[in-house]
Design a protein around this nucleic acid. Structure first.
Lengths: 229, 229, 229, 229
DNA sequence: GATGAATGAGGATTCATTCAT
DNA sequence: AATGAATGAATCCTCATTCAT
């Protein structure tokens, strides 16, 4: 989805355009517009994450993306539009991963949980994606559209997944209670905690996320785990 | 007639004044400096929480506090100093509450947990203090001094309290595992989740925090709770 | 619709603009960056000279240079940087003139003195450069870097020139004493006096600089001058 | 001349009030108002001299004078009024000294010159009064009233004195030419030079004022001075 | 399409001046 | 008279956005 070329028609957020641009057949021009767009988004994630939406300077985004400042406006209407695109773009891949987990409903719940935690550690906490999550937490309150999108795209699905999983686990006796089935947020909460802890205290008091999640699993299961570390 | 700061009383510039006209008492004096300071801090909490540190305008803080812009600088050196004072000030009272819980070490752990959750619901989630927590989460990464202070004053103590509690509970068999004793963050994580959820989704999908915490308790205990609510 | 810098195009605030309306060419572009830089420096000289460093308003400089306020910052980091550039820039051309005098060391000293005085009258007192000198005198004490630069670039060289000249004159008997050779400042002092007098009293009691300098020459020579003027 | 108690009637400078308050019979109250006034003026001289009129902060003046900021306004209408009073006040004593010189018209001109230079060295260059002179030079252009006053009170009289002296010297053959008689500024110019040099270069290249003035005398006289140093 | 110089509204901060005590 | 907290206009500087090339 190349440039925008609209003179701020009314302020966006509404234009809930195509679900995904879906990689247009490349025609090898100067520099693939899509690549440029990606470069900008990547730069934007770094800059927005480091400084927050307001303090982020588009100058920095442009410099980091290796484009001119004006170029940003060929791809995004506003700073705000860039920010929202950034979130939207980065959120999708996570969903795909979710899809994989959901696609294996016959996986024993404990293994599924384990897989989910691992996925989170590797694909979120271990990557720039944790910045994204942090950004949503920090800026979401000022960007209802983003919060709404995130809720719809990620939270609802994630909760659904977790609930199914927890219900299965509770039914099979793998979880000692159905508390997590009733409030699947409980499964995710420590992950959130890990992200926030990382953002605030990683320098002064780093958290052993592996240990945290192992302990979390024990609590969910309701009894000490033997075998696994 | 030489230069000297002309007050240019002619010319437009009609008072870019207050979004809330709020009939400003012309020259409110003798309002107990401390009260004024509190008013500023209160206003600052509201404004900073609503917009974030960078986007917050001191004009708004002043207007909201019912003082002139310059007055802020009689009480705080900077925007940043105001922000930090805000956090510091608001953090202490929470500590006192913590103190009360800690002062009752012979309280049965389950009751202590329950009390703690209730305290959090009433004194944090139910008040403006949740804004504070949200601010720390959102802005902490850019304010190491604040993160550090919060860690020292709140997190370390809180974790200590929770750990003692969880250990007692584990020893007495009240908790099915010692997971929470090893990672007391697990006890607090759902509270964090509640605050963040509230900030992001309260409008579109409010969370039943009471239910969440009841379920959380069940999970911690490792078996369904009868009786209680 | 979230926050984001609202351009508030409604509401008053009618352009606190230019003291000199001067039909501003809307978006003057491609005006040779160097020319623009010069325009800014020229405007800055006028404004700084009229009001002094502190009282000078960059708004005025911008208006006078026919650029937007922000444009100044594309060319100069600070108000102070602009000020220093201003001094530096304006100082060099004077040096070139000095060079010419120095390049004619065989010129009879009296003629050299005469040429020097004429140069000063035409190139300093008769132009905006006298403002520069006045600025250095007035602001130099607060700008050590500028004083140092001026000393190094102008004073040391100027003194050197004058000393060589005065020594020659003394040796040849053209000057009755070697006082000026020992303190070449004596040759220059009346020029300084002229600049200061001009700045303070030109309106109420203008000084005949030509007469002053003729008399000065007589004194230096040690006997009445016949012939010349 | 105690307080002012007028609400900025029209901006002053006109109120060319009493020539001198003339020490009112002290009634030993709290703190002699006149003493307070003097303290303020003294503080003001220091602060204005160090920073210039615009940059000088009345807070600093007040602090230095040991009074509250508001108190300044009991004694002076404006910052500007304070500045002008400062100049006026400090100028008078110099005039008295002048008087003494003028009162000895039978003193041999060379001795009178010498006395004058000594007076300047001791009473101006050697004291805070040089700051005053510097202030007048630097700020005078923006304060026509001050320039005018200074011209009237100091310059005209000084020039008159110098002229009389130079004429006598020329007539008696003590001066080789009547150049200085025609432009008595020539006598004073090196003094000015000394003040300015001191302000700009005292740190990096101090000037031997004694030597300068001796050389100056030689030049004026038109032949080397034996005897004196 | 891309560029980046130019624009100018906006916001933090300062400080002369006022005025209730 | 003296105080100093309060005021708010003024000013520097930033940075999102525009637009001529």
């Amino acid at each position: 989805m190349p440039p925008a070329r609209k003179r701020k028609p009314a302020a966006g957020l509404k234009s809930r355009a195509a679900p995904k641009p879906a990689a247009r057949p490349p025609r090898a021009r100067k520099i693939e517009p899509e690549a440029r767009r990606q470069a900008i988004l990547k730069a934007a994630l770094a800059v927005f994450a480091e400084r927050g939406f307001e303090a982020a300077r588009l100058d920095d985004v442009a410099a980091r993306a290796g484009v001119a400042k004006g170029t940003l406006y060929l791809y995004f209407e506003h700073k705000e539009a860039l920010f929202e695109a950034l979130i939207r773009t980065a959120v999708s891949p996570v969903m795909e991963q979710f899809g994989k987990l959901a696609a294996a409903p016959n996986l024993p719940p404990l293994q599924a949980i384990e897989a989910f935690f691992a996925l989170f550690q590797n694909e979120v906490l271990g990557t720039e994606r944790k910045l994204l999550l942090r950004l949503i937490i920090a800026e979401g309150p000022r960007f209802p559209a983003i919060a709404e999108m995130y809720h719809r795209e990620v939270v609802v699905r994630g909760i659904g997944l977790m609930r199914a999983l927890a219900e299965r686990a509770a039914r099979q006796g793998a979880f000692a209670t159905n508390g997590a089935a009733r409030y699947p947020q409980l499964i995710v909460a420590p992950l959130l905690m890990a992200v926030i802890w990382d953002g605030l205290f990683s320098k002064i008091d780093p958290l052993d996320v592996g240990g945290l999640l192992r302990a979390h699993r024990e609590v969910l299961i309701g009894k000490p785990q033997k075998g696994v570390s």
